[in-house]
Design a protein around this nucleic acid. Structure first.
Length: 489
RNA sequence: GUCCCCAUCGUCUAGCCAGGUCCAGGACACCGGCCUUUCACGCCGGCAGCACCGGUUCGAAUCCGGUUGGGGACGCCA
C-alpha cells in the first residue's frame, strides 16, 4: 500500500480560522493515524494578501495548536510555471482551448441570464474555432483565457466521497471552466490539482464547500493522466443563523489566536473542534492525543453542517459553552507541572510572574494551582480571579464585599483581631486555622461562616474559592496577617 | 434560476448502511436536589428531539418517493 499523504492548503489571511484549524486537525489526525505525511502548502496565489505576517499568522496558529507537518510550507506561487505548463499541455492535447470572449461579453450574458432568471453557463463560443478562425484571432493579438474542454454528451462524472458517498454530476451541468487567466496566470482549480498531483496527495480532506469543485477537478486529473486521490469532504461550521462563520461577520471569535489570548489550552481547543462534525461512534468526548489518533476515522464524520453555538455578547460564555467546558476539564485534570507551564505566560502578560515560581517557590506555586484551578475555566482566570495569590494589588468585588462585611460592622475590628491570632502562630496549618476560626466565631457569638467568609473576601478579593482553612495555611502567613489587619481601615 | 449536498433535544451528537432490543442514548446549556464556611467540582434527578406528507412492511428515526427548510457551488477569487 502506498504511503498516505494529505495536505492542508490555507490561503494566507493573517490568522488561522477555526474552520481551517478543524480541517488541519482532521488532516493531521488522518496522517498520524495512517503513518502518513501531512504537507503544508500556502496557497498564496493572491499575492496582495500574501505578506510575511499573514503567512506567519497561519503557521503560528498551527504551532500553537500543536499540529506539526512533515513537508512544507510549500508556496503555491512558486509553482506558477508548472501550472501553466500543465495548461499548455492540455491545450496541445486538445483537452483545453483558447477563449477570446471578453469579460464584458461574459458579464453581459451573465446578467442577462440573471434578469431572465435562467440558467447561465458559458456558451462555448470559442470551443470549436477552426484553425483559420483561431489563427486570425491570435494574430490580432486578442487576449485570451484557457478553458477546459468538458466532455459533451450524456455522460457524467461520478466519484465516491468518503463522507458523502456516491456523488455524480452530468457533463451538461459543468461548463467549460477557465484554467488560465488572460494575464497568463493559472487559476485555483488548476493550480490546486497540479500541486496535489506533484505532492502525491492520496487523500483530499477538505470542507464541504469543495464538494462542488470536485467533479471539475476530477476532469482535470483525468486529462492530466494522474491517478485520483480519495476525496473526503467534511461538513461546514455555521453560526446560529446558519451562515458561514467569518472574521468579517463574527470577529476575533473565529480565529485560533482569540482562544490563545483568552486562555485556552491548545489541546482543549483541538478536542472541541474535532467534535464539531465528527464523533467516535460512542460516548467519549475527551481524548488524549493518542486516543484521538486511534479513534479518528473519516467514517465518523457527520454529513450535516454543525452550528458553532456562540451567542454574541453573552457575559457568561464568551464562546461556545462546550468549548469552555472542555477547556475547564483539561484545566483541572492535566498534570499540575504542565499547568504551571501554561499559566506562566498568563501571569507574565499582566506582570505578576515571579521567577521563583520555577525555583524555590515551585512547590508553593504548583500547590496554589491545584488549590484554585477547580473553579477556573481559562488560563486567564489565574491572572484575574486568582490575582490575590500572586500579587498584593488586587481588586475586590464591591458588592460581594458589602455582602460579607456589611451585615456586621464589627468585622472591621474583628478581622485585625483575628490577624493577631494568626500572627501568634509559629506556622499556620489547616487544622490550626480551623480551630482558630471556630473559636474566634464562638467568642464573638456568630456563626463560623461570618468571619471566615469575610476573611476570604479581604484575603483573596473573591467571595468564592477553595476551602478557607487551606487558604489560611497556604497563601502565606504574612499575607494573611497583613490583609486581615488592613481590613481595619 | 441551475446543479450538488444535508435534515434526531436550544447546541454538539449516538442510533440509520445490515428495519424490531429506541414510547430514541450521551454531552453542553438550563432547572431542581445532595455535598459545603463560600463558590466550583462531583454525584443524583428533571426539561427537551426523529421537519412534514405519503409509500413499502406484521413492524420505520432507520428503506423508497415527494414537500418544506437549510447549506454549498455556479468568477479571468482561493
Amino acid at each position: 500500500m502506498t504511503e498516505v499523504r494529505v495536505r492542508f492548503p490555507p490561503s494566507p489571511t493573517g490568522y488561522l480560522h477555526i474552520g481551517g484549524a478543524r480541517t488541519a486537525i482532521c488532516n493531521w489526525l488522518f496522517a498520524k493515524k495512517h503513518g502518513g505525511k501531512l504537507v503544508l502548502r500556502i496557497e498564496d496565489t493572491d499575492t496582495e494578501r500574501s505578506t510575511e505576517e499573514s503567512i506567519e499568522g497561519i503557521i503560528n496558529g498551527l504551532k500553537w495548536l500543536g499540529l506539526d507537518w512533515d513537508e512544507g510550507p510549500y508556496f503555491q506561487s512558486a509553482y506558477a510555471a508548472e501550472h501553466l505548463a500543465a495548461a499548455h499541455r492540455l491545450l496541445s492535447e486538445g483537452a483545453a482551448y483558447k477563449c477570446f470572449c471578453t469579460v464584458e461579453e461574459l458579464e453581459a450574458r451573465r446578467q442577462e441570464a440573471a434578469r431572465t432568471k435562467s440558467d447561465y453557463r458559458y456558451n462555448g463560443a470559442c470551443r470549436d474555432l477552426n484553425p483559420e478562425e483561431l489563427a486570425a484571432r491570435e494574430t490580432t493579438g486578442l487576449t485570451f483565457v484557457i478553458r477546459f474542454r468538458v466532455p459533451r454528451g450524456e455522460g457524467f462524472v461520478a466519484f465516491k466521497d468518503r463522507v458523502y458517498g456516491g456523488i455524480e454530476q452530468a457533463y451538461r451541468d459543468i461548463e467549460d471552466f477557465v484554467i488560465v487567466r488572460s494575464s497568463n496566470l493559472p487559476l485555483y482549480l488548476l493550480s490546486n490539482v497540479v500541486d496535489d498531483i506533484r505532492d502525491r496527495i492520496t487523500h483530499v480532506i477538505r470542507g464541504q464547500d469543495g464538494l462542488s469543485n470536485t467533479p471539475r477537478q476530477i476532469l482535470l486529473y483525468r486529462a492530466l493522466g494522474a491517478p485520483l486521490p480519495v476525496f473526503a469532504h467534511m461538513p461546514l461550521t455555521l453560526d446560529h443563523k446558519k451562515a458561514k462563520i467569518s472574521k468579517r461577520n463574527h470577529g476575533e471569535i473565529v480565529t485560533v489566536q482569540y482562544y490563545q489570548e483568552r486562555g485556552f489550552i491548545p489541546w482543549a481547543l483541538v478536542n472541541f473542534l474535532v467534535l464539531l462534525g465528527w464523533s467516535p461512534g460512542d460516548d467519549r468526548e475527551i481524548f488524549s492525543r493518542e486516543e484521538l489518533i486511534a479513534a479518528f476515522s473519516l467514517e465518523g464524520m457527520t454529513r450535516a453542517n454543525a452550528i458553532f453555538n456562540h451567542r454574541k455578547g453573552d457575559p457568561k460564555f464568551f464562546t461556545d459553552p462546550k468549548a469552555i467546558k472542555i477547556n475547564a476539564h483539561y484545566l483541572r485534570t492535566i498534570p499540575v507541572a504542565k499547568l504551571a507551564e501554561l499559566v506562566k505566560p498568563a501571569l507574565q502578560k499582566v506582570g505578576i510572574w515571579d521567577e521563583a515560581y520555577e525555583k524555590d517557590r515551585r512547590a508553593w506555586f504548583q500547590r496554589t494551582l491545584e488549590l484554585i484551578r477547580e473553579r477556573f475555566h481559562t488560563l486567564s482566570d489565574f491572572a484575574s480571579l486568582g490575582r490575590a495569590w500572586f500579587a498584593d494589588d488586587f481588586s475586590m468585588d464591591e458588592t460581594a464585599l458589602h455582602k460579607h462585611l456589611g451585615k456586621y460592622p464589627q468585622l472591621k475590628e474583628w478581622l485585625p483581631e483575628l490577624a493577631e491570632r494568626f500572627a501568634a502562630l509559629p506556622q499556620i496549618t489547616p487544622d490550626e486555622a480551623e480551630r482558630i476560626s471556630r473559636e474566634f466565631a464562638e467568642a464573638h457569638g456568630v456563626k463560623p461562616g461570618i468571619p471566615i467568609n469575610a476573611a476570604r473576601m479581604v484575603i483573596t478579593g473573591q467571595s468564592k474559592g477553595p476551602n478557607m482553612f487551606e487558604i489560611f495555611a497556604h497563601i502565606g502567613q504574612d499575607k494573611v496577617v497583613k490583609r486581615l489587619r488592613a481590613a481595619g481601615q
